[in-house]
Structures are given as C-alpha cells and as structure tokens.
Amino acid sequence: MLKEKGILFDVTLCIGCGSCYDACKEANNLPKTSEDFLKDHLSDNTFNVIEQYDDLYARKMCMHCNEPACESVCLVGAITKTSTGAVVYDADKCIGCRYCMQACPHKIPRYEWGTTTPRIRKCNMCAERVSNGLIPACAESCPNEATLYGDMDQLIAIAKRRLQENPDKYYQHIYGLEEAGGGHVLVLSPVPFEQLGYIPELPKESMPEFTKRAMEKIPSVVVGGGIFLGGMYWLTKRKNQIAKEERSKNEN
C-alpha cells in the first residue's frame, strides 16, 4: 500500500514566477488560456492558478479532500480517491449531472461547456506521473520549494514546525488540514487566509457527513412508513366495514 501523499504550499516562499502554472499546463496537455498567468482563472483548460494579492501569491487548485464531497455525491462513482489520496475522475463513467461542481466546498471542478462530450476538469495531483514514479509537475518545477510534495505525515510535521519556529512570519493556521474534513493540500500564509481568496469558515467535519445524517434515516423511514401505511389501510378498512354493517343492521 502506497503512503498517503500530499502537497504543502507556502505563500511566504512563493515568488509568483509561474513555473507551476506552466508545468501544470504541460503535464496535462492544456492549451494556453491567458497572456498573463496571474490574471488567469480556473477553467476546463486550467487546473492550477496563481493569484496575486499585493506582494503575495496564492495557488488555487483541487484540495484533494480526505472525504471528498464530489466523490460522495457522484451517483455513478466517476470520482474516486486513489490509494495515495488523489481525487481522480473517470470521464467514461460520468453522465454529466454536475452535482460534483455544486457540492465542492472549495468550488474547484470545472466543466467543458464548449463541447458535446464534456468532461469534468480539475487537478488530479498528476496521478499518472505519480504512478510512473514521478512527482506532480507543479512541485517538481517550483524553483523555491514553495510547493512541496511528499508523505502527508511529514508535510504536516514540516508545516507545524514552520508555524512554531517563525510565529511572527506565519498566520497561525494550516489551511486545508481541517477545512471540510481536511485534505491533501496544505497551505501556509503570513496573513489570514480569506485575504488570499481561500474560502473561510468551512466546517471542520467532512462534507459527506451532512448528507449522511439524512441518508441514514432512509431505512427507518421505509420500514416505519411501510408498517404505518399497512396498519392504516387495515384500520380504516375495518372501520368502514363496521360502519357498513352498522348501517345495514339499522336499516333492517
């Protein structure tokens, strides 16, 4: 069994060079979508963006949740989690209901609106490269180690150490560790995360939990409802019968 892998992105180290943006495009065979990569946004042809906030740069990409909302809502199971923790998509299964786009707490999945055979498009943590022994293109291309790829437990340890050793440099929070149940992409920042466009106040429990609580009640609704309806049928029929008998008795 492969160890769970993830990505640690440190805003304080990012110089906004665009290497990861270009490497992602190349690794996924994606066409050019913008003259200026800093102005580009996530789309069916862009799985990784770098956004500029004054002199800080923030990467936006799939967070590869531990319990992905997209995976839980996909009725045909087109979205799955690999043994390394990457959230991957199988276009051959997908029927195109787009519930994953609606459900994603990080608003990541994009759709190929322009074709008649559209697919969901998003970062898959370079699942193919990783299975060939490589590391994700963004991590490989980063010249300043702002994006690290590695075992999740090690990445979490590194992130915690950085926060501890440089309390003045960092905003004391690891984004992605607990957000929406946590995931495989962690972010460190010198400022509160909402200032960098990361979605604040996500619940700490995983998103599928919200649905599970309702879905759990289905068996009891079916059994209880069935018994109730059957009972009512029997009761009301009996009542009508008695009323009928009474009436005929009275007539006689």
């Binding site: 009725l75 045909v76 199971g77 299964k93 029927i95 309702a214």
Partner: peptide, 26 residues
C-alpha cells in the same frame, strides 16, 4: 436534456454509489 453526456443516461442502472443522494433520487 440537462445531462452533459445524455448518451450515458443508463449508467446509474449498473454503476452504483449508494452514498449519493442523486443516486437515490434516480
């Protein structure tokens, strides 16, 4: 009409994800 891949409409018949509300609705 709304499905992106209407030609795959029959997939839920044999591709199951019982955790999906959409699956239950279908």
């Amino acid at each position: 009409v709304d499905l992106g891949r209407p030609e795959h409409f029959y997939h839920p018949l044999y591709m199951w994800n019982i955790h999906s509300v959409m699956f239950e609705i279908t």
